[in-house]
Structure formats: C-alpha cells, structure tokens
Simulated assay, not measured.
Amino acid sequence: MRIAVIADIHGNVLALDAVLDDLRSRGGADLTVNLGDCVSGPLWPRETMERLQALNLPTVRGNHDRRVAQDTADETMWPSDRYAQERLTPAQRQALLALPLTLEIAPGVTAFHARPDHDEKYLADAIVDGQLVRAPLTAIRRRLKPLDPACRLVLCGHSHRNELIHIPGGPIIFNPGSVGCPAYDDDTPPAHVSEQGSPHARYGIVELGKDGSPSRFESIAVDYNHEAAAKQAEQAGRPEWAQALRTGFIKD
C-alpha cells in the first residue's frame, strides 16, 4: 500500500496543486491522507477548501481548523484564522469542525494533527531558545501513551517540520512537513518559531509492506510559484507571511 501524506496547507492552494501534480508524476498513491490545518492563512482559504472538498481525502482536524470553525470572531482570534473564517461559508466551517481528531488509515497506522489526544500540543518537539527542536525520547513516549499499543506508524503534522523517528519498541513517527506554510512565528508562551529553511511545498509518501509494516519513506520538497503566494500575503497585509513564503525563514 502506498500512502501520500499532506499536512498544514494553510490556504496555500498553489502549493497544494503543485504537490498534487508532483504526486501524479510519481504514479500517484493508493491513498492520500490530509493531516489538517487546511485553510488558515492570508492566502486562498475558500479556494483551498473547495479543492479539498472535491478530493474528499481522509482528513483529521487541526487546531486552526477548529479555530476557523468558530461561529464568531473576537479579539482572541488569530488574524490568519479570522481571514479564513470570513471567507468560508457556514457549511464549510461546519465541515472543518466535524473532522475527527484521529483516524486509523490502515491497520496499525494512525493519523492525527498534533497529538493523539490534543490538536495543538507538539508531539516530537520541544521549545529551546525560541526554536522548535527534537524533544527527548522520554517526552515523546509519554505523549504517545494514548495510542493503541498495536500502532506501528504515526502520521502527524502541526510543527511544519519534517521528521522520521523510530521509537525503540514503539511506532515510527512520520511528519511530512508543511505543504503551504514553510515558517511561522508563535507568540503563545513560550514564544517560538518553526522554520523549514526553504520555500518548497513539502509532503511525504509511505509504502507499507505485505504485512502492513512501513517499509519505505519519501520526504519530498516541491518548487512552486511561492512568489505569487508571497504577493497574496502582502496584499492581505501580512508581510511576515510573505517573508516566510519567500524564504522558509521568519527573519533574514
């Protein structure tokens, strides 16, 4: 079985289309799973949602999907979530809210956005000196405890950082990186940044062997018209997003 894994599109329909085109050029996949945070961002939330609804992919709910789905905006709502909320229909917002926290993609293969029991806390990351870094193994093990012990493969996103971690005596964790948001600045204490280090659209492919065990992983970075995405962010009044889209970094 060949599984394509996409995550953290954040309304970047140009990056999404580039990833889907690249996947087709590689022969496609038996299944494509979407790990959430679909539309939040100053780009093309409605167009992205329409594209995803047409694809009807197995999808889990991200923290920004939940926030965008709120009925009303207030001063606590992040600008990217408000931008998307204002451009989606009520039915589209309801569709985001209805997404599950976790999905069993195949026997022993579990997908979620951040952690199996929370859509906003990091699984494999820690915050050190304002940057995301690999968390200690003991912390990752503790965060995986809600999983079924039979789980062999975890598919997750949220950090926007590509990761492949084999937990000794436990599952493999695969994070494909972000399709549409290569860097972000989170001022929630403790404030930190995540930076992929290039503007490419990221996704992954996992192959399962005949016994269902993961046998091969590909982490793929696709070039696309990131300058057009950056200009869209600038038009929306978000220069920091434009910087991230152009470079994969928050600051020069």
Rank of each mutant, 00 (worst) to 15 (best):
G130A: 13
E75I: 10
R46F: 02
D30E: 13
P171G: 08
G237V: 15
P239V: 10
V109S: 04
Q235C: 11
P100M: 12
L164D: 04
H226N: 13
Q235N: 14
G212H: 04
Q92S: 10
P199R: 03
A221K: 12
D21V: 06
D125Q: 15
L123C: 11
I167F: 10
G108N: 07
L155E: 00
I250M: 13
A228V: 09
L155W: 02
R93D: 10
L147I: 10
G177T: 10
A29V: 03
G157H: 01
N162G: 11
D71S: 14
N34H: 11
R142L: 13
L52V: 03
F174D: 01
L144E: 02
V19K: 00
K145N: 07
G170V: 07
P90G: 11
D129E: 15
R61H: 08
R238Q: 12
G27T: 04
R115Y: 07
R115S: 06
C151G: 05
S213V: 04
P42A: 05
G62Y: 09
H226E: 08
A236G: 14
L137H: 07
C151W: 02
N12W: 05
D252N: 13
Y203Q: 01
F174A: 05
R87C: 06
K145Y: 04
G36N: 00
R152Y: 01
K231T: 08
L144Y: 03
I165V: 15
V133D: 05
Q196S: 12
L55M: 14
M77L: 14
R24N: 06
R143H: 08
A135Y: 09
I165G: 02
A114Y: 05
E104N: 14
R161H: 14
W78K: 14
L155R: 00
A69F: 09
Q70G: 06
R216K: 15
L57I: 13
A229D: 09
I3M: 08
E75Y: 08
L35D: 00
M1H: 10
E163I: 05
A236S: 15
G27K: 05
A201R: 00
P214D: 06
L57M: 07
N175V: 04
D186K: 12
R67E: 15
Q85Y: 03
N175P: 05
R143K: 11
R46D: 10
P58S: 13
D74V: 09
A242I: 08
A114T: 06
D37L: 03
V179T: 06
A233T: 10
E240H: 14
A183Y: 08
R143D: 06
H200T: 03
S40H: 05
H192N: 13
P136W: 12
I167P: 01
A135F: 07
R66K: 14
D119S: 13
V19G: 00
P239Q: 12
L123P: 02
R115P: 01
E207W: 09
A221P: 02
G237P: 06
N34T: 00
D119P: 14
S194M: 07
V154A: 04
A91F: 09
T76G: 12
L99A: 06
P199Y: 05
G248R: 00
P189R: 15
P168Q: 12
